[in-house]
């Protein structure tokens, strides 16, 4: 097991290094000249050349990558072209918000999705199943910003029940936090809930057909015990493996929701950075999110092995 985890961590590091390398090459492919980007267009030839050397652009690509990487490892992601401040200082508070939103939304999606999925599977063919499965099919692929705009219209403009925008940390003002977060969280989690619900349903229906469930029934166990103790236990294994994948999805989706509800996360910063070609910020964001997602995949794999004895024993 220890060996497995260490080899998975090794694989993850390779992935992150690859991602970081590709993002680093961005600087070279990007049509924008980084010297002008950093110092503005109105500089003299001497100033330009000084800046060129200061950015180490005279050195070969691999050397520059090595220097950049070693700086990054020390926590120095460079200076934002637009905001002229340390990328890390700029990004950290926003990443915290985005991560908070995505992790919360992952928790909600899995909790509610699994619950609803279990209901549909147990009530297969009954009206509960028909209604929930239909809704899940509709919602599973709705873009989060469409849902967000719809919610905004219903709850803020038509009825003015909830605040339209902003974000407050729960330790600052919990009530406000809840009111501000309700709609973004719903918008972000809706498709997640729907797809986890579908996944749980099909996984459970698959397990219910298995011989060992018939065995459990033939032992005279209560239906509830059969469902919770045997069906769910087995059916959740493939659902858990979706964790990494879903988190990646939520980090992406969070940007739209942040945009609609004016939440100060990475969303708006990234849009600005793309439009301004703020390369250091883009690099930092891509690499950091790759780290987060690789970690999520790692946790998923370990969970998978821990939950299903067949995998480690094979």
């Amino acid at each position: 097991m220890v060996k497995y985890i260490s080899s998975r961590i090794g694989q993850m590091l390779v992935t992150v290094v690859l991602v970081s390398f590709f993002t680093y090459i961005l600087v070279d492919i990007m049509p924008k000249d980084p010297v002008y980007a950093l110092y503005g267009p109105n500089i003299t030839q001497e100033e330009y050349e000084a800046g060129y050397r200061a950015l180490d652009l005279d050195k070969p690509l691999l050397v520059r990558y090595g220097m950049w990487a070693s700086k990054v490892l020390r926590g120095d992601w460079g200076t934002s072209y637009k905001h002229h401040m340390q990328v890390w200082k700029l990004l950290a508070p926003k990443i915290a918000v985005t991560l908070y939103l995505s992790v919360l939304s992952a928790i909600v999606s899995f909790a509610v999705g699994i619950l609803l999925g279990a209901v549909t599977a147990v009530k297969r063919g009954k009206w509960q199943d028909t209604v929930l499965t239909f809704l899940a099919n509709l919602c599973a692929s709705l873009p989060s910003f469409v849902v967000a705009l719809g919610l905004l219209y219903l709850f803020c403009i038509r009825s003015q029940l909830l605040p339209t925008s902003g974000f407050t940390w729960p330790w600052v003002d919990f009530g406000k936090h809840v009111r501000q977060l309700a709609m973004p969280l719903f918008a972000l989690s809706l498709s997640g809930v729907a797809s986890i619900c579908r996944q749980t349903r099909s996984s459970m229906l698959e397990v219910i057909r298995q011989d060992y469930i018939r065995t459990a029934r033939s032992k005279g166990l209560r239906e509830r015990v059969v469902i919770v103790g045997h069906v769910m236990r087995n059916a959740l294994v493939p659902v858990i493996t979706l964790l990494g994948n879903r988190l990646a999805y939520f980090i992406g989706g969070a940007m739209f929701v942040e945009n609609v509800f004016s939440i100060p996360g990475t969303g708006s910063l990234m849009v600005q950075s793309i439009n301004f070609m703020d390369v250091p910020v883009i690099q930092a964001f891509v690499v950091l999110s790759a780290v987060v997602i690789s970690l999520a995949y790692l946790v998923t794999d370990i969970l998978y092995v821990a939950v299903d004895p067949r995998i480690s024993l094979d």
């Binding site: 298995q210 011989d211 060992y212 018939r214 065995t215 459990a216 033939s218 032992k219 005279g220 166990l221 045997h230 236990r233 087995n234 294994v237 939950v307 299903d308 004895p309 067949r310």
Partner: peptide, 18 residues
């Protein structure tokens, strides 16, 4: 189970794997 017990064909799939 209590009065009538039953064993099934596929020994490989008739026990709960987890």
């Amino acid at each position: 189970g209590g009065k009538i017990g039953m064993i099934f064909q596929e020994p490989m799939t008739s026990l709960d794997p987890v």
